[in-house]
Design a protein around this nucleic acid. Structure first.
Lengths: 155, 155
DNA sequence: GTACAAGAGGACCTCTGTATCAAGAGGTCA
DNA sequence: TGACCTCTTGATACAGAGGTCCTCTTGTAC
Protein backbone atom coordinates (compact mmCIF):
# COMPACT_ATOMS: atom_id res chain seq x y z
CA UNK A 1 0.00 0.00 0.00
CA UNK A 2 1.69 3.19 1.18
CA UNK A 3 5.25 3.08 2.46
CA UNK A 4 5.90 4.45 5.94
CA UNK A 5 7.83 7.29 4.35
CA UNK A 6 4.89 8.38 2.19
CA UNK A 7 2.59 8.26 5.13
CA UNK A 8 5.01 10.25 7.28
CA UNK A 9 5.16 12.89 4.56
CA UNK A 10 1.37 13.09 4.37
CA UNK A 11 1.07 13.41 8.12
CA UNK A 12 3.63 16.19 8.22
CA UNK A 13 2.02 18.07 5.35
CA UNK A 14 -1.37 17.59 6.92
CA UNK A 15 -0.01 19.23 10.05
CA UNK A 16 1.43 22.12 8.04
CA UNK A 17 -1.98 22.58 6.46
CA UNK A 18 -3.38 23.34 9.89
CA UNK A 19 -1.15 26.37 10.37
CA UNK A 20 -2.40 29.84 9.66
CA UNK A 21 -1.04 31.62 6.64
CA UNK A 22 2.58 32.70 7.09
CA UNK A 23 3.02 30.60 10.21
CA UNK A 24 5.93 28.14 10.44
CA UNK A 25 6.52 25.13 12.65
CA UNK A 26 9.83 23.84 13.98
CA UNK A 27 11.08 20.45 12.88
CA UNK A 28 11.12 19.41 16.52
CA UNK A 29 7.51 20.36 17.06
CA UNK A 30 6.45 18.88 13.77
CA UNK A 31 8.07 15.62 14.75
CA UNK A 32 6.33 15.69 18.11
CA UNK A 33 2.87 16.40 16.79
CA UNK A 34 3.04 13.88 13.95
CA UNK A 35 4.88 11.13 15.78
CA UNK A 36 7.53 10.87 13.08
CA UNK A 37 11.14 10.48 14.31
CA UNK A 38 12.74 13.88 14.11
CA UNK A 39 15.87 13.05 12.17
CA UNK A 40 14.02 10.93 9.72
CA UNK A 41 11.38 13.58 9.30
CA UNK A 42 14.14 16.06 8.46
CA UNK A 43 15.12 13.91 5.52
CA UNK A 44 11.55 13.62 4.34
CA UNK A 45 11.03 17.35 4.64
CA UNK A 46 14.12 17.86 2.55
CA UNK A 47 12.57 15.85 -0.25
CA UNK A 48 9.37 17.85 0.06
CA UNK A 49 11.34 21.06 -0.04
CA UNK A 50 13.24 19.95 -3.14
CA UNK A 51 9.91 19.08 -4.73
CA UNK A 52 8.71 22.61 -4.12
CA UNK A 53 5.97 21.65 -1.72
CA UNK A 54 7.27 23.24 1.45
CA UNK A 55 9.45 26.17 2.42
CA UNK A 56 12.21 25.50 4.97
CA UNK A 57 13.71 28.45 6.73
CA UNK A 58 16.86 28.16 8.82
CA UNK A 59 18.03 30.15 11.77
CA UNK A 60 16.19 31.61 14.70
CA UNK A 61 12.50 31.84 13.99
CA UNK A 62 12.79 29.38 11.13
CA UNK A 63 10.80 26.24 10.46
CA UNK A 64 8.58 24.68 7.82
CA UNK A 65 5.53 25.96 6.03
CA UNK A 66 3.50 25.03 2.97
CA UNK A 67 4.55 26.71 -0.24
CA UNK A 68 1.15 26.18 -1.90
CA UNK A 69 -2.40 26.23 -0.58
CA UNK A 70 -3.40 22.91 0.99
CA UNK A 71 -6.17 22.40 -1.53
CA UNK A 72 -3.63 22.68 -4.33
CA UNK A 73 -1.52 19.79 -3.07
CA UNK A 74 -2.85 16.39 -4.09
CA UNK A 75 -1.83 13.14 -2.48
CA UNK A 76 -0.37 11.94 -5.76
CA UNK A 77 2.12 14.84 -5.67
CA UNK A 78 3.47 13.50 -2.41
CA UNK A 79 3.16 9.77 -2.89
CA UNK A 80 4.85 9.81 -6.29
CA UNK A 81 7.93 11.31 -4.65
CA UNK A 82 8.47 8.29 -2.46
CA UNK A 83 6.89 5.34 -4.25
CA UNK A 84 8.32 3.68 -7.30
CA UNK A 85 6.34 3.40 -10.51
CA UNK A 86 5.82 -0.34 -10.12
CA UNK A 87 3.92 -0.02 -6.87
CA UNK A 88 0.71 -0.23 -8.84
CA UNK A 89 1.44 -2.28 -11.93
CA UNK A 90 -0.94 -2.65 -14.83
CA UNK A 91 -1.46 -6.28 -13.93
CA UNK A 92 -1.57 -7.77 -10.49
CA UNK A 93 1.12 -10.19 -11.61
CA UNK A 94 3.58 -7.58 -12.76
CA UNK A 95 6.39 -10.07 -13.20
CA UNK A 96 4.38 -12.44 -15.33
CA UNK A 97 5.17 -11.74 -18.95
CA UNK A 98 2.34 -13.93 -20.12
CA UNK A 99 -0.19 -11.31 -19.19
CA UNK A 100 0.17 -8.49 -21.70
CA UNK A 101 -2.11 -5.75 -22.89
CA UNK A 102 -2.57 -7.65 -26.16
CA UNK A 103 -3.42 -10.86 -24.37
CA UNK A 104 -4.59 -9.89 -20.91
CA UNK A 105 -5.55 -12.36 -18.24
CA UNK A 106 -9.20 -12.65 -17.33
CA UNK A 107 -8.81 -10.60 -14.19
CA UNK A 108 -7.02 -7.81 -15.99
CA UNK A 109 -10.05 -5.57 -16.44
CA UNK A 110 -11.20 -5.97 -12.86
CA UNK A 111 -7.76 -5.23 -11.59
CA UNK A 112 -7.66 -2.16 -13.80
CA UNK A 113 -10.78 -0.83 -12.09
CA UNK A 114 -9.24 -1.29 -8.65
CA UNK A 115 -6.03 0.32 -9.79
CA UNK A 116 -7.79 3.28 -11.37
CA UNK A 117 -9.87 3.76 -8.27
CA UNK A 118 -6.75 4.03 -6.21
CA UNK A 119 -4.96 6.35 -8.59
CA UNK A 120 -8.00 8.59 -8.92
CA UNK A 121 -8.24 8.74 -5.18
CA UNK A 122 -4.65 9.96 -4.99
CA UNK A 123 -5.20 12.41 -7.82
CA UNK A 124 -8.40 13.96 -6.52
CA UNK A 125 -7.73 14.01 -2.79
CA UNK A 126 -5.96 17.06 -1.39
CA UNK A 127 -4.28 17.84 1.89
CA UNK A 128 -7.47 19.55 3.02
CA UNK A 129 -9.33 16.26 2.77
CA UNK A 130 -6.99 14.44 5.12
CA UNK A 131 -6.58 17.30 7.56
CA UNK A 132 -8.57 17.47 10.75
CA UNK A 133 -9.20 20.77 12.40
CA UNK A 134 -7.11 19.88 15.41
CA UNK A 135 -4.60 22.69 15.38
CA UNK A 136 -5.06 23.19 19.08
CA UNK A 137 -4.19 19.74 20.35
CA UNK A 138 -0.62 18.57 20.79
CA UNK A 139 -1.17 14.88 20.53
CA UNK A 140 2.01 12.87 20.36
CA UNK A 141 1.87 9.57 18.53
CA UNK A 142 4.42 6.81 18.32
CA UNK A 143 6.73 6.27 15.37
CA UNK A 144 5.17 3.83 13.03
CA UNK A 145 7.04 0.79 11.96
CA UNK A 146 5.83 -1.25 9.06
CA UNK A 147 5.36 -4.76 10.28
CA UNK A 148 4.21 -7.70 8.30
CA UNK A 149 2.68 -10.71 9.91
CA UNK A 150 4.60 -13.92 9.51
CA UNK A 151 3.07 -16.46 7.17
CA UNK A 152 0.62 -18.45 9.18
CA UNK A 153 1.39 -22.11 9.18
CA UNK A 154 -1.92 -23.17 10.54
CA UNK A 155 -5.45 -22.62 9.31
CA UNK B 1 0.70 -3.38 -3.18
CA UNK B 2 1.43 -7.09 -3.26
CA UNK B 3 4.67 -8.39 -1.77
CA UNK B 4 6.98 -10.33 -4.04
CA UNK B 5 6.18 -13.45 -2.06
CA UNK B 6 2.44 -13.15 -2.61
CA UNK B 7 2.94 -12.59 -6.27
CA UNK B 8 5.30 -15.55 -6.52
CA UNK B 9 2.69 -17.70 -4.85
CA UNK B 10 -0.01 -16.56 -7.26
CA UNK B 11 2.20 -17.19 -10.26
CA UNK B 12 3.04 -20.67 -9.05
CA UNK B 13 -0.58 -21.51 -8.32
CA UNK B 14 -1.63 -20.08 -11.64
CA UNK B 15 0.84 -22.43 -13.29
CA UNK B 16 -0.52 -25.38 -11.33
CA UNK B 17 -3.99 -24.42 -12.48
CA UNK B 18 -2.91 -25.05 -16.06
CA UNK B 19 -2.14 -28.70 -15.41
CA UNK B 20 -4.63 -31.35 -16.27
CA UNK B 21 -6.30 -33.18 -13.46
CA UNK B 22 -3.95 -35.51 -11.58
CA UNK B 23 -0.89 -34.05 -13.24
CA UNK B 24 2.05 -32.79 -11.14
CA UNK B 25 4.95 -30.47 -11.85
CA UNK B 26 8.44 -30.56 -10.39
CA UNK B 27 9.65 -27.71 -8.20
CA UNK B 28 12.51 -27.22 -10.64
CA UNK B 29 10.18 -26.89 -13.61
CA UNK B 30 7.73 -24.76 -11.69
CA UNK B 31 10.56 -22.41 -10.82
CA UNK B 32 11.64 -22.30 -14.44
CA UNK B 33 8.23 -21.59 -15.89
CA UNK B 34 7.29 -18.96 -13.33
CA UNK B 35 10.66 -17.27 -12.98
CA UNK B 36 10.67 -17.63 -9.21
CA UNK B 37 14.00 -18.65 -7.59
CA UNK B 38 13.79 -22.37 -6.95
CA UNK B 39 14.82 -22.49 -3.30
CA UNK B 40 12.64 -19.57 -2.41
CA UNK B 41 9.75 -21.06 -4.30
CA UNK B 42 10.18 -24.23 -2.27
CA UNK B 43 9.56 -22.28 0.91
CA UNK B 44 6.51 -20.60 -0.55
CA UNK B 45 5.12 -23.92 -1.73
CA UNK B 46 5.57 -25.26 1.76
CA UNK B 47 3.35 -22.49 3.12
CA UNK B 48 0.79 -23.25 0.46
CA UNK B 49 0.93 -26.92 1.34
CA UNK B 50 0.47 -26.16 5.02
CA UNK B 51 -2.49 -24.00 4.10
CA UNK B 52 -4.05 -26.94 2.32
CA UNK B 53 -3.91 -25.39 -1.12
CA UNK B 54 -1.44 -27.69 -2.80
CA UNK B 55 -0.31 -31.27 -2.56
CA UNK B 56 3.44 -31.90 -2.49
CA UNK B 57 4.69 -35.37 -3.25
CA UNK B 58 8.30 -36.41 -2.74
CA UNK B 59 10.41 -38.95 -4.49
CA UNK B 60 10.62 -40.03 -8.08
CA UNK B 61 7.61 -38.88 -10.02
CA UNK B 62 6.67 -36.43 -7.30
CA UNK B 63 5.92 -32.75 -7.59
CA UNK B 64 3.22 -30.23 -6.86
CA UNK B 65 -0.44 -30.12 -7.75
CA UNK B 66 -3.52 -28.21 -6.68
CA UNK B 67 -5.54 -29.76 -3.92
CA UNK B 68 -8.72 -27.88 -4.85
CA UNK B 69 -10.21 -26.85 -8.18
CA UNK B 70 -8.71 -23.61 -9.47
CA UNK B 71 -12.07 -21.88 -9.38
CA UNK B 72 -12.36 -22.68 -5.69
CA UNK B 73 -9.15 -20.87 -4.77
CA UNK B 74 -9.58 -17.13 -4.38
CA UNK B 75 -6.74 -14.65 -4.39
CA UNK B 76 -7.58 -13.65 -0.84
CA UNK B 77 -6.86 -17.22 0.30
CA UNK B 78 -3.32 -16.85 -0.97
CA UNK B 79 -2.59 -13.20 -0.26
CA UNK B 80 -3.79 -13.40 3.33
CA UNK B 81 -1.18 -16.08 3.95
CA UNK B 82 1.67 -13.73 3.20
CA UNK B 83 0.40 -10.22 3.89
CA UNK B 84 -0.27 -8.80 7.29
CA UNK B 85 -3.61 -7.31 8.28
CA UNK B 86 -2.30 -3.74 8.22
CA UNK B 87 -1.49 -3.82 4.53
CA UNK B 88 -4.83 -2.23 3.81
CA UNK B 89 -5.72 -0.14 6.83
CA UNK B 90 -9.09 1.43 7.43
CA UNK B 91 -7.59 4.86 6.91
CA UNK B 92 -4.85 5.81 4.53
CA UNK B 93 -3.00 7.33 7.47
CA UNK B 94 -3.00 4.23 9.62
CA UNK B 95 -0.56 5.64 12.15
CA UNK B 96 -2.52 8.82 12.68
CA UNK B 97 -4.73 8.39 15.70
CA UNK B 98 -6.58 11.57 14.92
CA UNK B 99 -8.56 9.84 12.22
CA UNK B 100 -10.97 7.47 13.95
CA UNK B 101 -14.21 5.88 12.93
CA UNK B 102 -16.03 8.27 15.27
CA UNK B 103 -14.29 11.28 13.83
CA UNK B 104 -13.09 10.27 10.38
CA UNK B 105 -11.07 12.53 8.12
CA UNK B 106 -12.76 13.95 5.06
CA UNK B 107 -11.12 11.44 2.75
CA UNK B 108 -12.11 8.49 4.89
CA UNK B 109 -15.18 7.50 2.91
CA UNK B 110 -13.42 7.75 -0.43
CA UNK B 111 -10.56 5.71 0.86
CA UNK B 112 -13.02 3.14 2.12
CA UNK B 113 -14.38 2.69 -1.40
CA UNK B 114 -10.92 2.13 -2.80
CA UNK B 115 -10.11 -0.29 -0.04
CA UNK B 116 -13.31 -2.25 -0.47
CA UNK B 117 -12.77 -2.41 -4.20
CA UNK B 118 -9.41 -4.01 -3.65
CA UNK B 119 -10.63 -6.46 -1.03
CA UNK B 120 -13.61 -7.46 -3.14
CA UNK B 121 -11.30 -8.02 -6.05
CA UNK B 122 -9.23 -10.41 -3.97
CA UNK B 123 -12.32 -12.13 -2.62
CA UNK B 124 -14.05 -12.64 -5.94
CA UNK B 125 -11.14 -13.39 -8.22
CA UNK B 126 -10.07 -17.00 -8.53
CA UNK B 127 -7.01 -18.70 -9.94
CA UNK B 128 -8.93 -19.35 -13.12
CA UNK B 129 -9.22 -15.62 -13.69
CA UNK B 130 -5.49 -15.04 -13.60
CA UNK B 131 -4.56 -18.14 -15.54
CA UNK B 132 -3.84 -18.09 -19.25
CA UNK B 133 -4.66 -21.11 -21.29
CA UNK B 134 -1.06 -21.92 -22.08
CA UNK B 135 -0.97 -25.50 -20.96
CA UNK B 136 0.49 -26.52 -24.30
CA UNK B 137 3.71 -24.55 -24.04
CA UNK B 138 6.90 -25.96 -22.53
CA UNK B 139 5.17 -29.07 -21.39
CA UNK B 140 7.38 -30.26 -18.58
CA UNK B 141 4.79 -32.05 -16.56
CA UNK B 142 3.78 -35.64 -16.35
CA UNK B 143 1.13 -37.64 -14.59
CA UNK B 144 1.68 -38.04 -10.92
CA UNK B 145 2.08 -41.60 -9.81
CA UNK B 146 -0.95 -43.00 -8.11
CA UNK B 147 -0.19 -42.76 -4.45
CA UNK B 148 -1.91 -41.65 -1.33
CA UNK B 149 -1.27 -38.15 -0.19
CA UNK B 150 1.05 -37.70 2.72
CA UNK B 151 -1.14 -36.55 5.57
CA UNK B 152 -0.31 -32.97 6.34
CA UNK B 153 0.87 -32.56 9.88
CA UNK B 154 -1.44 -29.69 10.67
CA UNK B 155 -4.91 -28.52 9.73
C1' DG C 1 31.63 39.95 14.72
C1' DT C 2 30.00 36.55 17.78
C1' DA C 3 26.74 33.43 19.79
C1' DC C 4 23.07 30.74 19.05
C1' DA C 5 19.15 28.53 16.59
C1' DA C 6 17.75 25.50 13.11
C1' DG C 7 17.87 22.94 8.70
C1' DA C 8 21.18 20.00 5.47
C1' DG C 9 23.43 15.99 4.73
C1' DG C 10 26.80 12.11 5.15
C1' DA C 11 27.91 7.90 7.66
C1' DC C 12 26.23 4.25 9.82
C1' DC C 13 23.02 1.07 12.28
C1' DT C 14 18.91 -2.17 12.51
C1' DC C 15 15.23 -4.85 10.97
C1' DT C 16 12.76 -7.45 7.64
C1' DG C 17 11.78 -9.39 3.14
C1' DT C 18 14.07 -11.84 -0.31
C1' DA C 19 17.27 -15.35 -1.71
C1' DT C 20 20.87 -19.16 -1.40
C1' DC C 21 23.22 -23.30 0.50
C1' DA C 22 23.67 -27.66 2.23
C1' DA C 23 22.11 -31.49 4.60
C1' DG C 24 18.11 -34.32 5.83
C1' DA C 25 13.76 -36.93 5.28
C1' DG C 26 10.56 -39.33 2.63
C1' DG C 27 9.50 -41.92 -1.49
C1' DT C 28 10.23 -44.94 -6.03
C1' DC C 29 12.25 -48.47 -8.60
C1' DA C 30 15.16 -52.15 -10.14
C1' DT D 1 18.60 -53.18 -0.36
C1' DG D 2 20.78 -49.56 -2.45
C1' DA D 3 20.78 -45.95 -5.90
C1' DC D 4 18.36 -42.20 -7.13
C1' DC D 5 14.81 -38.66 -7.02
C1' DT D 6 12.30 -34.79 -4.86
C1' DC D 7 10.47 -32.06 -1.24
C1' DT D 8 11.73 -30.20 3.64
C1' DT D 9 14.23 -27.54 6.78
C1' DG D 10 17.59 -24.84 9.31
C1' DA D 11 21.39 -21.71 8.79
C1' DT D 12 23.04 -17.98 6.54
C1' DA D 13 23.68 -14.00 3.22
C1' DC D 14 22.11 -9.85 0.96
C1' DA D 15 19.58 -5.54 -0.05
C1' DG D 16 16.65 -1.86 0.91
C1' DA D 17 13.57 0.78 3.93
C1' DG D 18 13.45 2.87 8.15
C1' DG D 19 15.89 5.24 11.73
C1' DT D 20 19.93 7.54 14.49
C1' DC D 21 24.14 10.22 15.23
C1' DC D 22 27.07 13.74 14.40
C1' DT D 23 28.95 17.53 11.94
C1' DC D 24 28.44 21.24 8.62
C1' DT D 25 26.11 25.25 6.76
C1' DT D 26 23.01 28.98 6.86
C1' DG D 27 20.41 32.62 9.02
C1' DT D 28 18.97 35.76 13.04
C1' DA D 29 19.70 38.62 17.05
C1' DC D 30 22.40 41.48 19.74
Amino acid sequence: MLSATSEYALRALSRLAQLSRGEAILGRDLSQSTGVPQQYLAKIMLSLRNAGLVLATRGTGGGYMLLRPADAIHLIDVVSLFEGPSTWPHCLLRGDRKCTSEKPCTAHAHWGKVRNGYLEFLEHTTLVDITQDTAHETQVTRPLRKKRARPTTNC
